[in-house]
Design a protein around this nucleic acid. Structure first.
Lengths: 156, 156
DNA sequence: GGCTCTGATGCAAGTAGCTTGCAAAAGCAT
DNA sequence: ATGCTTTTGCAAGCTACTTGCATCAGAGCC
C-alpha cells in the first residue's frame, strides 16, 4: 500500500483523502497541486461557484499550499483532460469548476456573474438541438446562457 | 441633407448605403470603421459565421478599408452597445457576428468551430430555465452549446 | 529505510488578445 | 468653408495564458 503524501493531503483532512483516491483511480500521481486545486474547487463550489486561475492560486495558498500560477494552469489542463474539472470561457477570462454531472451555466453580460443551472428539462432540449446541428453535446456543462442576472436587473 | 461619406460607403455599394442609414437611425456618426466592420460581418454571415477581431481587420482590408486593430476593437465595442453586433466568448478569443434576431451558438470544444443554431424550440426552453435562475436572457444569442462538432466526431 | 526514474514544480521569459493615451484626421452641423 | 466633436492610427501597456529549463518530489523497487 502506497503511503499518502501527507504534507499535502493532511491540510484537507477527509476531503484530501477522497481526492487522493479519486486521482489514483485515474492512475494519476497524487501531487500537492492537484490535491490543492481540487480541494479549493470543492470548497468553492459550496458558495460562489467557479474560480479564475488567479483566484484558485489564492484559494490554494489559503489552504496552506502556495502554487505558481503556471502550475495552476498546467494542473487545470490536466484535470480538465481527466474530466474532473471544466472550463467556462468568459469575457477576458476563464473560470473553472468541478465537473459535477448535469449542470449548465448562466453568465451575466453586465457583471460577469456566473451561476449554475441544474434544470433537467434542459437536457432533452439540448439533445434535440444538437441533433439538428450534427453536434455532440459534451456530456457535461453543455449549455451556457447569456443574459442579465437578477442583481443587474433592468435599469429602465 | 447630409452628404454621405462616399469614400467609405461606395466600396460596399447598396449594402453600404443600408448600413449608413442604419447607423443614422441610431444617431451614430457614419465612419469608415463602422461601415466596414458591419459590411464585413454582413458578407461573412453568409458563409462562415462570426469572425475574430483579427479576421475582421483582414476582411475590412479586403474590402479596401484598412483598419488598425485597436480601431476594430473600439468599433466592435460601440456596435455591441448599439445592439448591432454581438460577441461570443471562446477559449482564448472572442468572435463577433451580426446581432440578427433569434439565433444561438454551438462551439466545438476540440476545433473551436462555431456554428449558428436557429432552433425556435430552444427559446421556450431558455425562458423556463431563466425563470428558474432569476435570469433575464439577452433577447439574442442567449444560448451557447458546448460539445464536439461533426467534423471532430468521436475518434474511438 | 534508501535508490532511481519519471513526471511535477517554480521561475522567468515570451506570446496573444485586448486596452489606452495622445496627436492627427475626419464627420457633420452651421 | 469653418469649427466643434468624435474617430483613427500609432505605440505603449496590461492581463491572461504558455513554454523552456533546471530543480524537486511522488511512487515503485530493493
Amino acid at each position: 500500500m502506497a503511503r499518502l503524501p501527507q504534507s499535502t493531503v493532511n491540510h484537507l483532512g477527509e476531503t484530501g483523502a477522497r481526492i487522493a483516491m479519486q486521482l489514483r483511480r485515474h492512475e494519476e500521481r497524487v501531487t500537492p497541486a492537484k490535491v490543492a486545486v481540487l480541494g479549493a474547487l470543492t470548497r468553492a463550489d459550496e458558495t460562489p461557484p467557479h474560480l479564475t486561475a488567479r483566484e484558485l492560486g489564492a484559494a490554494t495558498a489559503h489552504l496552506g499550499i502556495r502554487l505558481d500560477e503556471a502550475t495552476v494552469y498546467r494542473t487545470l489542463t490536466r484535470l480538465e483532460a481527466l474530466g474532473l474539472v471544466h472550463a467556462v470561457a468568459m469575457n477576458h477570462t476563464t473560470r473553472f469548476g468541478l465537473d459535477t454531472p448535469p449542470h449548465h451555466h448562466a453568465v451575466c453580460d453586465r457583471c460577469s456573474a456566473l451561476q449554475v443551472i441544474t434544470a433537467a428539462q434542459l437536457d432533452t432540449l439540448v439533445a434535440s438541438a444538437c441533433a439538428l446541428a450534427e453536434f455532440s453535446p459534451g456530456c457535461r456543462q453543455a449549455v451556457t446562457l447569456n443574459g442579465v442576472c437578477g442583481a443587474c436587473a433592468p435599469p429602465a
